[in-house]
Simulated scan of single mutants.
Amino acid sequence: MQLTFLGTSAGRPTKDRNVTSIALSLPEPMNSFWLFDAGEGTQHRLMGSKLKLNKLDNIFVTHLHGDHVYGLPGLLSSRSYFDGAGPLKLFGPSGIRAFIEGVFRLSGTHLAYDLEIIEITSGQILDDGKFKVEAAELDHRMPCFGFRIIEYPQPGQLNMERLAELGLAPGPLYGKLKQGEDVTLASGEIIRAADVVSPPTAGRVITVLGDTYPCGNSIALAKDANLLVHEGTFGPGMEAKAAAYGHSTVLQAAETAASAGVKQLVLTHFSSRFDKETIGSLLDAAREVFPHTIAADDYMEVDIPKSV
């Protein structure tokens, strides 16, 4: 699994950073990706990546501020021109349906695929048998959500050497053993799954938060996550300004990561007032609170290794 940051600026784009959008590439054999927010220019950023719109399955919108949604109409429209573009689900807060349907109606846009728009509330919003997604409302100037993506545990690996010793050739029984089922051979001998399959691997947890002032739901969504994506709109000493606009400083993001016990924090959504050198200084300050912190750049790819 891998996160690709397509836009890391807050409010408006800069020469170096587009506005918010993050892609989550899913593991094989799925070979698809999900998108979190789509600020203006997101489809242009996608063109500079290895991601293709016909591989996009789900879009999750944190809130309806323009730097998070103005790229949606164009992206959804362009997807019709990609061969193999199947049904797509769009999850977002109340109002996302009116926004999309209004733009499409006024512009005469028609899609060549099925688009399902789901207006969400807090709680579980998706379970596809491989991943679950939970949403909770954050503390911002308008309704805004964060998302907790939970991968189901992965089956253990077959001990091929032991199976060969037992005389069991590859075939359908391998699948049953891998799923934890004991099997009985024609001889009457029972092979127990626990004897030939390693323990399952815990699934990964990724938390992607929308714009937010520090709040309890941020910590709850990020609890023990493998990776947390948190906005870092403002720098140290700007707490009052952050509170006024419903945002966080990089130190507050680091404090949330520490409180939640996450493995890694990625800061994004930086104010356009900060240049690259300043963001380096902000990163140093955040690492004083939570050492396992990185600052996202546009097109940065962050791998999410399997849980041990």
Rank of each mutant, 00 (worst) to 15 (best):
S107D: 12
G108I: 10
H110R: 14
H110M: 09
H110I: 09
L111F: 12
A112D: 15
Y113L: 06
Y113K: 04
Y113F: 11
D114F: 08
L115M: 10
E116H: 09
I118G: 05
E119A: 08
S122I: 02
S122F: 00
S122H: 02
Q124K: 14
I125L: 08
I125C: 06
L126S: 09
D128S: 05
G129C: 02
G129Y: 07
K130F: 15
K130A: 09
F131R: 07
F131G: 04
K132S: 13
K132P: 06
K132M: 07
E134F: 13
A135F: 01
A135Q: 01
A136E: 09
E137C: 00
L138R: 10
H140P: 00
R141P: 00
M142I: 14
M142G: 09
P143V: 04
F145E: 02
G146P: 03
E151Q: 15
Y152R: 14
P153R: 08
Q154H: 07
P155D: 13
Q157Y: 03
Q157G: 01
L158F: 08
R162A: 15
A164T: 09
E165I: 05
L166S: 13
G167N: 03
G167T: 05
L168P: 11
L168A: 12
A169S: 15
A169Q: 15
P170D: 10
P170R: 15
P170N: 08
P170A: 10
P170V: 06
G171M: 11
G171P: 05
P172M: 13
L173F: 13
G175W: 12
K176N: 07
K176L: 13
Q179G: 12
Q179F: 06
Q179K: 13
E181Q: 10
D182K: 05
V183M: 10
V183H: 09
V183Q: 08
V183R: 06
T184W: 06
L185C: 01
A186Q: 13
S187K: 07
I191V: 10
I191Y: 04
R192G: 07
R192W: 10
A193E: 09
A193N: 11
A193H: 12
D195W: 09
D195G: 13
V196K: 05
V197D: 07
V197F: 07
S198K: 13
P200I: 12
P200W: 12
T201Q: 13
T201C: 05
G203P: 03
R204Q: 04
L209Y: 05
G210H: 06
G210V: 02
D211S: 12
Y213C: 06
N217V: 04
I219T: 11
I219D: 02
A220K: 12
A220T: 11
L221Q: 05
L221N: 01
L221F: 00
D224T: 06
A225Y: 01
A225M: 04
N226G: 09
L227R: 01
L227W: 08
L228D: 00
H230M: 12
H230E: 11
G232R: 00
F234R: 02
F234C: 00
P236W: 01
P236I: 00
P236D: 01
G237S: 03
G237Y: 01
M238E: 14
M238A: 13
M238G: 00
M238S: 06
A240M: 07
A240H: 11
K241L: 15
A242E: 03
A243K: 15
A243H: 11
A244N: 05
Y245D: 12
